[in-house]
Amino acid sequence: MSTLQEKYPAEIQAILSKYPVEQARAAVMPLLYLAQRQEGFVTKGTMNEIAELLSISVTDVASIVGFYTLYYDQPGGKRRIQVCNDLPCALRGAQEFLDKLCDNLGIRVGETTADGLVTVESVMCLAGCDKAPVFQVQTGEGLSYHENQSVESAMALVESWRKDARSSQDADKK
């Protein structure tokens, strides 16, 4: 497998240029997002590469992955639906939304659907409390907000991903 430096040389340069040269370590968080892009989680190999690139220990990189909740060292579903069930949202029905969504997907909170497409997680406040139910969708490519949701709208979203997945599989077969 090719390294981050082979895959994203320009982006790595752009990230490093944001920080004083002698403070290269500051680049570790943006580099971890880059590392997560392809697989949706940070592999051992990319942890080693980031450590080397920034002259810090692999343990340091791993502890940062462990500390921050948006980094993963294990694969999950292709998309993570992160439903806010914090106090203000819970006062507006977030728990019911989360339960029904999971029922519809046939999984429990924290689990991944059998097709590996979706993991559902319960998360803390997302700064969208006036638009509950609210969730974000995280993939290796980034995060997006989905506000004022219903179980129907969320399921429609999941259905559209399933369709995309099927058509890309078909394309692979041809």
């Binding site: 803390m124 406040c125 700064a127 969208g128």
Partner: peptide
């Protein structure tokens, strides 16, 4: 960072 539950103004 705007992470206090109930805060969504900075966004």
């Amino acid at each position: 960072d705007e992470s206090e539950p109930g805060t969504f103004k900075d966004r």
